[in-house]
Simulated assay, not measured.
Amino acid sequence: MASELIFFTNPMSRGRIVRWMLEETGCSYRTEILDFGPDMKAPGYRSINPMGKVPAILHEGTVVTEAAAICAYLADAFPNAKLAPPPGDPRRGTYYRWMFFAAGPLEAAVSNKSLGFEVPADRQRMVGYGSIEDVLTALEYAVSQSEYIAGDQFSAADVYVGSQIGWGIMFGTLEKRPALEAYWNRIANRPAALKAREKDDALLPPKA
């Protein structure tokens, strides 16, 4: 069906972010699981995402890749879920600001730190995030101004930023600062988050 929403993912990927977002919208969708390697690099899937990576969605003929972009798209595609401040609302700027801060500076800084790469102090102007300390200070600010990222209402920005924080705390790639832990504790057990986690965990390969 042309109107069907297809979700391409792997339970050991950033697709977990999108699964949470899909569950928050309450929309119906079909899941296509792809294994890392040949499945994702096959011509059929590369016609969906030339990068050969997940997650991706196909909705009413539109392909969207990149977890932050998918979250933003779904929030607008399913407005009844109220997962984004409406156009014209001043909170929308804050919503976009921190969602894409997490997709850009935060992700880059954490990835580099995990790989053991530290930007020399005299070269920090050359990278978008400057230093990991700058990123953590900004992230603390983002989660400390109100209950949720864009005010008093949960949004897609919380799904995306919260997922980054949750993973960072779980895997030790983010410093466990009190403001970050308090924010994550506020959102981690939302019904949609728990449902998404249950679905993805059920798809994990059995432990040896």
Rank of each mutant, 00 (worst) to 15 (best):
V143F: 04
N112E: 14
Q145S: 00
Y148G: 03
I149R: 11
V110K: 03
A77Q: 09
S114V: 05
V110A: 08
Y73S: 10
L83S: 14
V143G: 05
E140N: 12
V135I: 01
E107L: 07
A150G: 08
Y129N: 05
A69R: 01
V127H: 08
L136F: 09
E107D: 13
T137F: 02
R92D: 09
D89S: 08
P79K: 04
A69P: 01
P120S: 09
G130R: 06
F78Y: 11
Q145A: 04
I132C: 02
N112R: 11
Q124C: 06
S111N: 12
S144T: 06
D76V: 13
F101Q: 06
Y95E: 10
A121W: 03
Y129E: 04
W98F: 11
R125P: 08
L74T: 07
S131M: 02
S146Y: 04
A150K: 01
G93A: 13
A103V: 00
Y96G: 01
A103T: 02
I132E: 02
P105L: 01
P87K: 08
Y141F: 12
N80E: 15
P79E: 02
I149C: 07
K82W: 04
P86A: 14
V110L: 05
A102W: 10
K82S: 13
P87L: 09
S144F: 01
R97H: 13
Q145I: 01
A142P: 08
A109S: 15
S144D: 01
A121R: 05
G104L: 04
Y141W: 06
F101E: 07
G104P: 06
T94I: 13
D134W: 02
P86I: 14
N112I: 00
P90G: 02
R91N: 15
G128S: 07
F117R: 02
D122A: 04
Q124A: 07
N80K: 09
F101Y: 14
A102Q: 12
G104I: 03
S146V: 03
F100S: 10
A108C: 06
S111K: 03
T137W: 01
L136M: 08
G116S: 03
G88S: 12
P85L: 13
Y148T: 12
R97C: 06
G88W: 15
G104C: 07
A150P: 09
T137S: 07
M99I: 10
L83F: 14
S146N: 10
P86N: 13
P105S: 13
V110P: 12
D76S: 12
A75S: 15
R92L: 06
E66D: 09
G104E: 09
A142M: 05
C71A: 12
F78C: 00
A68M: 09
E147F: 00
R97K: 13
P90K: 01
S131T: 13
A69Q: 04
A69K: 06
V127E: 10
Y95L: 08
L106E: 08
L106Y: 13
D134K: 08
F101R: 04
P120D: 12
P79G: 04
I132N: 03
D134F: 00
D89N: 15
G151Q: 11
I70K: 07
F117Q: 05
M126Y: 11
D134T: 14
P79V: 00
Y73W: 08
A138K: 10
P105K: 10
G151S: 02
F78I: 07
A138E: 12
V119H: 05
V143N: 03
D76Y: 14
V127Y: 03
K113N: 15
P120H: 11
